[in-house]
Amino acid sequence: MALNTPQITPTKKITVRAIGEELPRGDYQRCPQCDMLFSLPEINSHQSAYCPRCQAKIRDGRDWSLTRLAAMAFTMLLLMPFAWGEPLLHIWLLGIRIDANVMQGIWQMTKQGDAITGSMVFFCVIGAPLILVTSIAYLWFGNRLGMNLRPVLLMLERLKEWVMLDIYLVGIGVASIKVQDYAHIQAGVGLFSFVALVILTTVTLSHLNVEELWERFYPQRPATRRDEKLRVCLGCHFTGYPDQRGRCPRCHIPLRLRRRHSLQKCWAALLASIVLLLPANLLPISIIYLNGGRQEDTILSGIMSLASSNIAVAGIVFIASILVPFTKVIVMFTLLLSIHFKCQQGLRTRILLLRMVTWIGRWSMLDLFVISLTMSLINRDQILAFTMGPAAFYFGAAVILTILAVEWLDSRLLWDAHESGNARFDD
């Protein structure tokens, strides 16, 4: 018995066209964080690309023209004298008006014999932002004059995390709450300039795509075929072959399989920071003279006294001054041990922890910024005066060393310790 099946006739004509040209192939790229070699397709503007294995951002879609970056830099340069030299806060102490600005706080630190601690604050609040705007201006002028731009481009990517104007702005709020127990506070004209400078700096850093600047100024022929001998440069993120001198053909720094002496430098910085954190938390970090009496505060006791007036601000200072430094030390110690013992479990967790400490590390400088600003506000000789204690130097040095330890660690070593050939990683 035959089955009668109805015929289905399409209502619209289906047209099949042959592909007349070869589909576009992607360029081969190595991930600078996990060293995976993959094919990167062509990316349009405002599109980002991520590593298929570790999800690290390979290409950032946010990109401004150099002219727009230069305009932002010149605007920031105009704001800087007002943000640093004009009063941020006014207080009335014992019937006398006192003005506080950024430069005055750094000068008070240096004047009291601790120039190293003052230079830490100076670099993060004044030096690094000033280098940022002058570097962008150098790129703008240098591109037109045919100057060598490689050193500036190499420095810009590392400079971003040292620009800490946003953290200093939080420190202004913390210092205001600490001082309000002794005097009446009012915002100064410099505060508005400083807030504007923070906003412009944040926007500029978020749109400063150094890798795209490398592509514009020093374009290189990408690798179009897969080759395990391809290496990625950690300076400019170019994937290719080393030249005859073993250097990256684009930025001219040595092109090595792994960062040289990464573990040794990381261990040295980490152990030194552990040693410095002990006096930083045991010795007094601030000293207040009130009517001839002397009151010393460690980091913890200062947080407890701050909690009596504002528990939320005390929580912020606790996280930045105690929780973050010790968390960074514990995480980095764990990561280094996992590399030495070739741990194969929990790779995803370790990668996330490394990215976390990379982002939060700079916030530990908050305590030094609060001390710097408070020193310029309260300084009335023996009637009422505020000065920093010996722990300030140890704390600042420990924070900087932990930042350097994270920067010096080559994250690809975590993958080397893991089993080879993993296309995915999980716990």
Rank of each mutant, 00 (worst) to 15 (best):
P6A: 07
T11N: 08
R17C: 11
E21Q: 08
G26K: 09
D27Y: 03
C31N: 00
C31I: 00
P32L: 10
Q33H: 08
L40W: 06
E42T: 06
Q47K: 04
S48M: 15
P52M: 04
R62D: 08
R68Y: 07
A70C: 12
M72V: 06
A73Q: 03
T75V: 13
M76S: 04
L77T: 11
L78A: 06
M80S: 09
G85P: 03
E86G: 03
E86K: 03
I91L: 03
L93Q: 01
I96K: 03
R97C: 04
I98C: 02
A100D: 04
V102R: 00
M103S: 04
M109Y: 02
T110H: 05
G113K: 14
A115D: 15
M120K: 01
F122G: 02
F122A: 04
C124N: 10
C124T: 11
A128Q: 01
I131V: 11
L132F: 13
A137I: 05
L139F: 02
W140R: 09
L154Y: 02
E157W: 15
R158A: 11
L159N: 04
M164E: 05
L165Y: 06
D166R: 15
G171K: 00
G171P: 00
G173F: 10
G173E: 01
V174M: 14
S176Y: 06
I177R: 04
K178S: 02
V179F: 01
V179S: 03
D181Y: 04
A187G: 13
G188N: 05
G188T: 07
F192Y: 10
L197Q: 03
L197P: 02
T202G: 14
T204K: 09
T204H: 11
N209K: 12
V210L: 15
E211F: 13
E212V: 15
Y218K: 11
Y218M: 05
Y218L: 08
P219N: 14
P219V: 14
A223C: 13
E228N: 14
K229V: 14
V232L: 14
C233V: 00
G235W: 03
P242N: 13
G246Q: 07
G246C: 12
R250N: 05
P254I: 08
L255F: 15
L257M: 13
R258C: 08
H261Q: 10
S262H: 15
L263Q: 12
W267M: 14
I274W: 14
A280V: 06
A280N: 03
L283N: 07
I287S: 06
N291I: 15
G293V: 12
E296I: 12
D297S: 08
I299Q: 04
L300E: 05
L300K: 02
S301E: 05
G302Q: 00
M304G: 14
M304Q: 15
S309N: 11
N310D: 09
I311A: 14
V317F: 08
F318T: 06
I319W: 12
A320M: 15
I322T: 03
T327W: 13
T334S: 10
L335H: 10
L335E: 09
L336E: 02
I339M: 13
K342Y: 13
Q344Y: 14
R355H: 14
T358Y: 13
W363H: 05
L366G: 15
D367L: 00
F369A: 03
V370D: 00
S372R: 01
S372K: 10
L373V: 02
T374M: 09
L377W: 11
N379I: 03
A385L: 07
G389T: 00
P390C: 09
A391G: 06
A391N: 02
Y394R: 03
A398F: 02
V399K: 00
T402L: 00
I403G: 02
L404D: 09
W408L: 04
R412W: 00
D416R: 10
E419C: 13
E419D: 12
F425R: 10
D426R: 06
